[in-house]
């Protein structure tokens, strides 16, 4: 326990220090990476710890983002309450999706989540009058103020992203070490056995979906707040694939893995997009290589070889 706490607090301290050292370009990237890593950590609760593969997490990200964005622009809420509305929207959405989708298992579960997510995307397009459809809308800098702090300012933004990231990271670390976390892992490993030890598998799965969706939604809302843009592209299929990719690459079922995967992938795409427009090729190649040669991802390998204690 002490080792893992040191590691995770150490990561947060490192990211805190980088704020003062990192050059402006990487500074901006890191803020984005921390928000996206929070998205991936949310995804990991379901996929990595409970064994539920969703192909529709873009919907939670988007619902959080639009819940925040629309309540700020249409209802005129200030950014704090709007952020709360975003999280609440994602919570309700994930509860409904969980109640329905958990009636299916395996491949059907994946397709159902994909379809629900697609429905959300099409809904956003259909109500283009409010959502501005494909174009999306900008959240004005004057709106993005909280406690007298300007969230569009690079330094404030970095710390806000770090705050979100730290809360999610430590929250998940706590969850994984808690009795509930142990049951989620048991469900992933052997659902029938978990049931025959007296655990209500269905309720635990539902809890996992709601926690996962809510964290992902919080990341979406934060993205909208910190980068000032809300758009339909965030509800499309690639944004359901990205968290899967980040988690697989970094290591499913590890607390730190989603961050490692997001960081790696971000810079890989960043580098390749200077060479070619077809940078999504990198995504494809890495997905295939991961499934073939490294099922457990980078941190999974670290755990197997060197650090069995890694949560």
């Amino acid at each position: 326990m002490r080792k893992s706490l040191t590691l995770h607090l150490g990561l947060i301290a490192l990211l805190f220090a980088l704020q003062f050292i990192a050059p402006a370009y990487h500074h901006g990237n890191l803020a984005r990476i921390m928000v996206m890593a929070s998205f991936a950590m949310g995804y990991n609760i379901m996929f990595g710890y409970t064994g539920l593969l969703s192909l529709g997490h873009a919907m939670f990200f988007a619902v959080g983002m639009y819940g925040m964005g629309l309540s700020a622009t249409q209802l005129g809420l200030s950014i704090g309450p709007a952020f709360g509305v975003g999280i609440l929207s994602a919570l309700i959405c994930s509860l409904i999706v969980g109640l329905l989708a958990l009636r299916t298992i395996g491949v059907a579960f994946m397709i159902v989540t994909l379809m629900f997510s697609q429905t959300i995307f099409l809904t956003i397009l259909y109500f283009g009058g409010i959502t501005r459809g494909d174009e999306g809308f900008v959240i004005k800098q004057s709106t993005r103020q909280i406690f007298g702090l300007d969230l569009s300012d690079a330094t404030t933004r970095y710390f806000a992203a770090l705050l979100l990231f730290s809360l999610v990271l430590l929250g998940i670390l706590w969850l994984v070490k808690s009795p509930t976390g142990r049951v989620l892992i048991a469900i992933r490993e052997n659902e029938e056995r978990a049931k025959m030890l007296g655990y209500d598998v269905w309720r635990h799965k539902l809890a996992a979906v709601v926690m996962s969706g809510t964290v992902s939604g919080a990341a979406g809302a934060a993205y909208g707040v910190l980068f000032g843009y809300v758009g339909a592209s965030f509800s499309q299929v690639p944004y359901s694939i990205f968290p899967l990719l980040w988690v697989l690459l970094g290591g499913a079922g590890t607390v730190i893995g989603p961050f490692v995967g997001t960081l790696f992938m971000f810079y890989l795409i960043d580098l390749s997009s200077t060479v070619t427009d077809a940078y999504m090729l990198v995504v494809g190649v890495i997905l295939v290589l991961l499934t073939m040669f490294a099922r457990n991802g980078l941190m999974g390998i670290v755990r197997e070889r060197w650090a069995k204690w890694l949560p």
Partner: peptide
């Protein structure tokens, strides 16, 4: 394996699509 196949074919999707783009 059903799950790994889905992930692998998602990878394949991007490979084919992007190579065509290139």
């Amino acid at each position: 394996d059903p799950e790994r196949t889905i992930v692998a074919t998602i990878g394949l999707l991007y490979i084919i699509q992007q190579v065509t783009l290139m």
